[in-house]
Nucleic acid binder design. Structure first.
Lengths: 338, 338
DNA sequence: GAGTGGTCTGTGAACGTGCACACACTCTGC
DNA sequence: GCAGAGTGTGTGCACGTTCACAGACCACTC
């Protein structure tokens, strides 16, 4: 006998038979409606004794909704492993959905095969809505949800989002603000390690830095690295120190980059924050873990997830939602590194 | 008009009408069976033109399976944010499930409310099986899957698992092996920073250390810290140096702990690996990121996920699976820190 | 005592599929 | 010409729910 013994699950019919009532009455106990105390207690006892659990597939079929929302993480390889934010976004979304009694189901897309299967999954009526993080431009999934008219909210905003609602932060303003704060500590030669300039977040942070410096902006004091990475920070800082040894302030495009820069500065014999003030971006574990702890911009990751979930829930309630973006606050967290 | 216009989805009836055939023939095109080339192409054209996507709820109802497997992450707060392994486990599982054309749906449990809802979700027939990571003892979810007879595999093994299949690593052997390797570099006073002794992984790693030292084991050279954390490594190492300044080798219970220890050793003016050899456990990003890079035990996180998925798939195929645990190899990765 | 309104219950019809079965047609070989 | 095999197609039922409807019963009130 190789096939595991799977006893047939109890249905609403079994409960009705055991309680001596009809299906309709059982359904009313489950979903509300007039039902006598006697019948109710008989049915509740019957549910217990036969071990009844409603079959959600059948319920979904007739109700045309599933009480579940997808959380889509694209290309998670670098993200899950390196980006400490995505977990927080996910937990924030889960919290808001949970409160509304929705089940969050997280789907990861890691290959072309996944893209197709996830499209089918979304189209198949498994979920009532979706939250999508880290979508790329011309993402087939974006097309799929558009075609399906599936209530969706994005976290971050790829350029071809159209009128889809999204939640994000104002990278320009946040970068401008922390740079200004760094300047206010009296630094004279302030540099930036810019990263991921091909993404809007990367480009925007550089723009904010430029705005804060105004007239004093010097392109020689900007090092560019491809990714938000420790290694990039290390290399970028070494490059900057070669170009201008008198640097006394650095804005790194992320905390990971800042951690790399810190290592380079330390190797070069610079004291932080005495010789050089250093600030990051994200308020991730990198920032708290560093010695000295990093001054940084708090990225409200959990809030982004929570807010995205709320926008999806609003759509599900049939409410009109603001098309376009919602920007969340990014408070500055001042610690020891500047 | 507040309710978004959701055009009715096309059903198999619409396709049949458009193609001038019956439902049955459409179903055969979708699921295999005899169908003439003429009918087939007419139906395929009709599917395109009406934009038909099968309703999975209805399909699941009649097929009694969903082609989806749950990935359950319990208490993700510390895990998702701190543990770099869980993401890899998840990606490994996704890879194996994807290959078998199963959809992985990840569910996070973050509160009592979540526990109940997830139990309902699992019971509701949304998934055919489950992979559970980081389950605790007396976990209500463990009870739920047992009662449901849902094909399940655990990653790691809480003590009350019963006959449930699980996948894990041999912490005792791995710890013994890396300690032996460390001793073979000629170290005389080898200490351990043990962590999470309330979990079997933590206790097992200490036991492996003890076995490797044999007669030379000295309880004074074991510092105990509560969690696999950077902070714990820092404090534990400081404590050990106070007890025995002549330490020349350290086995830290995880890479994060080792990173903390590294910081403490550096502050105390010890050169790594010249004065003190240091080894960790996990082969996480911590290990590669550290300066010097850590020698450590490779935890086959993706392999654990993959293997767990395979065991679930085997159960789904009705195969008899080995009750009890499957242990994966944990090769030693020798880098610069010892 | 008939009408009225509220409370409670059972029944039938969906929801959109897949599958078993029955049937129709064509071809082969005798 | 006819049985039998092989190929292609349509129909009815089942899956387990929810929901609308109809109806039964029980006070009340006029």
């Amino acid at each position: 006998m190789t096939i595991p013994q799977q006893r047939a699950r109890a249905t609403v019919h079994d409960v009705a038979a055991a309680a001596g009532v009809s299906r309709g009455t059982v359904s009313r106990v489950l979903n509300g409606g007039y039902v006598s105390p006697a019948a109710r207690s008989a049915i509740e006892a019957a549910i217990q004794s036969v071990g009844y659990v409603p079959n959600t597939a059948a319920r979904n079929l007739v109700r045309q909704r599933t009480q579940a929302v997808a959380f889509l993480a694209h290309e998670p390889h670098p993200l899950f492993l390196e980006d400490p934010n995505i977990g927080s976004v996910m937990l924030g979304a889960n919290e808001a959905l949970s409160l509304a009694d929705y089940q969050m189901v997280c789907l990861v897309i890691d290959s072309v095969r996944d893209t197709e299967r996830v499209s089918r999954y979304l189209a198949g009526g498994f979920v009532d809505g979706a939250i999508i993080v880290s979508a790329r431009s011309h993402d087939p999934i974006t097309r799929a949800v558009t075609r399906l008219a599936l209530p969706t909210t994005f976290v971050g905003h790829p350029p071809d989002l159209g009128t889809m609602p999204w939640v994000g932060i104002d990278n320009v303003a946040a970068a401008r603000e922390i740079t200004t704060r760094l300047l206010s500590t009296g630094r004279q030669r302030v540099a930036m390690i810019a990263a991921a300039l091909d993404r809007d977040s990367g480009a925007d942070r550089l723009e904010g830095f430029r705005q804060a410096l105004g007239e004093r902006f010097d392109p020689r004091l900007v090092a560019e690295v491809p990714l938000y990475e420790y290694g990039g920070g290390l290399a970028g800082m070494e490059e900057l120190l070669r170009r201008e040894p008198a640097i006394d302030g650095v804005f790194a495009a992320s905390d990971a980059v800042a951690a790399g820069a810190l290592e380079a500065l330390r190797s070069a014999g610079r004291a932080i924050p005495e010789d050089v003030g250093l600030v990051g971006f994200d308020d991730s574990t990198w920032a708290r873990r560093s010695r000295p702890a990093l001054s940084t911009v708090h990225q409200p990751a959990a809030g982004l997830g929570r807010r995205a979930a709320e926008v999806v829930l609003a759509q599900l309630r049939g409410e009109e939602v603001e098309r376009g973006g919602i920007l969340l606050d990014t408070p500055i967290v001042w610690r020891e590194s500047a």
